[in-house]
């Protein structure tokens, strides 16, 4: 049984506290260490004061915090802002040039892994390989819900990875893509807004059954559902969509297929109860599947704060859950 995985956290977990000036960068690192992370991911656009570059002053801070709290950056979260120009998308040449700047920043921070997004096209990704090798940074395309390890878009990247044979191009699956139940915070917020539980259940049932979103919307309107259901419905068909439990084994098999190319895992979570169980993402099954492989990288905990309540407590619970599952 594979027990070589390491547990880390992205400082994005503390995004709400950071935006409210309750935590500065140092406090985010300290909280990640207190929660039990042995390394952290930094999202450049969120926490680098001189983004997209990194200053000597900031590198000094990172070093000092590592001495103080015992943890440093292991992964750099890059954003691929293809739509940053007002008039047109960036070209592949421009996207590649910007991503090389990201490699320089990741390298300066000492990160061996960098998260990239699928706005970077497969052909630009292919051209990145020699630069990634020079900087010794492994670049993984994030597989984020609604994408899955076997969705057509991800297969295009797989083709490039296999074609180049580069050890520096790969994937970073985000476990949100294995959701098998509705997003709990969105459900809770809808109830608070006055949506009836029976209507939420009706929406979820239609989603499980594969009903088209417009048809689902019409049926909910017909049933006199509160208009606030529309936001939840959008999520159910968008970035927090879910599959049925019966589909899970095939999804996990898909992940195992690309596992040789996975540099890191993003352990997404939205809500964990006091028993440290995630409400919609089946962690026991996911971790069991990874244990059957030789993956020895970081499991990076990633809290998405839909409740705007801050990530401090939930991150502790998520790390506890992973520690428990890894030790079983």
């Amino acid at each position: 049984m594979n027990t070589n995985m390491k547990i880390g956290a992205t400082l994005f977990c503390y995004g709400t506290e950071y935006a409210r000036y309750e935590y500065d960068f140092e406090e985010c690192v300290k909280q990640a260490a207190l929660a039990g992370a042995t390394g952290y991911e930094i999202v450049g656009t969120q926490m680098l004061p001189s983004y997209p570059n990194v200053s000597d002053e900031f590198l000094g801070l990172v070093t000092r915090l590592k001495e103080t709290y015992g943890i440093g950056p292991v992964s750099y979260g890059a954003n691929n802002d293809r739509g940053m120009r007002h008039d047109r998308d960036l070209s592949d040449d421009e996207m590649l040039a910007d991503t090389i700047i990201d490699l320089k920043t990741a390298n300066a921070l000492g990160c061996k892994v960098m998260r990239a997004q699928y706005m970077l096209s497969p052909s630009a990704f292919e051209r990145l390989a020699p630069y990634a090798e020079l900087y010794d940074v492994h670049v993984g395309i994030e597989i984020h819900n609604p994408e899955t390890p076997t969705s057509p878009k991800m297969m295009e990247y797989l083709a490039v990875i296999e074609k180049t044979g580069s050890k520096y191009l790969g994937f970073i699956p985000d476990f949100g893509c294995f959701s098998i139940a509705p997003n709990k915070p969105q459900w809770m917020k809808a109830l608070q807004a006055g949506v009836k539980e029976e209507h939420l259940q009706m929406a979820a049932d239609m989603r499980y059954a594969g009903v088209d979103i417009e048809e689902a919307r019409a049926k909910l309107t017909e049933a006199n559902a509160h208009p606030a259901i529309n936001g939840v419905l959008q999520g159910m068909y968008g970035f927090v969509q879910f599959k049925s439990k019966e589909q899970l084994p095939a999804l996990l098999e898909g992940m195992k297929r690309i596992m040789p190319y996975c540099f890191e895992m993003h352990c997404k979570f939205h809500y964990l109860d006091e028993n440290c169980v995630e409400a919609s993402i089946p962690y026991p099954e996911i971790i069991a599947a990874i244990k059957e492989t030789s993956f020895d990288g970081y499991l990076i905990c990633e809290y998405e704060d839909e409740l705007y309540c801050g990530g401090t407590e939930f991150t502790k619970r998520q790390i506890k859950q992973l520690e428990t599952l890894l030790s079983e």
Binding site: A19, Y51, G83, M84
Partner: peptide, 15 residues
């Protein structure tokens, strides 16, 4: 004014 998002933006993203 503080940007109302979890990350920063290039000013060119302002529509």
């Amino acid at each position: 004014v503080q940007l109302g998002y979890y990350r920063g933006h290039y000013l060119s993203d302002i529509d």
